[in-house]
Design a protein around this nucleic acid. Structure first.
Length: 237
DNA sequence: CTGGGGAGGGGGCCC
DNA sequence: AGGGCCCCCTCCCCA
């Protein structure tokens, strides 16, 4: 959670270091069971993720919706002869017997320093990446080869174009299991789910106000906090 | 000022 | 190796 790494609200970009992932992402939103008794909408797999208690793997922290899923996942931490499978020496992430050796080596690259010998810079925007593969992935973002035939807007990823097309077609495949409201984008449904929560996980370190969404807290810091904007930490409680 | 939604981007992982 | 998917995030706009 954010209690571990203070997040300067006016400088959120520092949290977006390329090639690196947060070590401990926020836990999924999990309201009390009594809060939602609705049948899960068949169109929303997200509701299962958000409204079901998660089972966490002691080896790698990966969460599963059910204990049986967790048991199956745990198998991946052991090789065929019962020994532990490949494990990252830096973060402990384990790879199952079905994983190739390149899976672990590629993962280990994410721990490299941006100042290291293997680091590479994007010739287009100058951003530094931990490895050549990491840079190669970034380079795709400069290649806008997926073009909308309706309005001509171009995107770097096919699924970005797919999402954009929904704004033309009006298709909204992601439904909220609680209120039925539909969304074209999964991320926006996730944010919407949090608005149903009675819990406000994000607390202003300056004036003690709490918010359901981190983006609300950021907005508060930047424009509204009476106790001095931009110097507090986003704390989860 | 807060709450909420629409649109889009970056990067990691799985297959 | 690359596509697809997922998660997390920001920006913008509006009520």
């Amino acid at each position: 959670g954010y209690s571990q790494h203070c997040l300067p609200p006016s400088n959120c970009e520092t949290d977006k270091r390329p090639g690196l992932r947060r070590v401990s992402p926020d836990p999924p939103y999990t309201p009390a069971p009594e809060e939602y008794s609705d049948q899960e909408s068949p169109q929303s797999s997200l509701s299962a993720r958000y409204f079901t208690p998660r089972h966490s793997c002691p080896e790698c922290g990966k969460t599963s919706a059910t204990s049986s899923n967790l048991s199956r996942h745990k198998q991946t931490h052991r090789s065929l002869d019962g020994q532990m499978a490949r494990k990252c020496p830096t973060c402990g992430k384990a790879y199952g017997p079905s994983a190739t050796s390149s899976n672990l080596s590629r993962h280990k690259q994410t721990h490299r320093s941006l100042d290291g010998q293997m680091a590479r810079k994007c010739p287009t925007c100058g951003k530094a990446y931990v490895s050549m593969p990491a840079l190669a992935m970034h380079l795709l973002t400069h290649n806008l080869k997926h073009k909308c035939e309706v309005c001509g807007k171009a995107f770097s990823r096919p699924w970005l174009l797919q999402g954009h097309m929904r704004s033309h077609t009006g298709e909204k495949p992601f439904g909220c299991s609680h209120c039925g409201k539909a969304f074209a984008d999964r991320s926006n449904l996730r944010a919407h789910m949090q608005t149903h929560s009675a819990f406000k996980h994000y607390k202003c370190a300056q004036c003690e106000k709490t918010f359901a969404l981190k983006s609300y807290l950021h907005k508060h810091y930047e424009s509204a906090c009476p106790r001095g904007a931009g110097h507090g930490c986003a704390v989860e409680h």
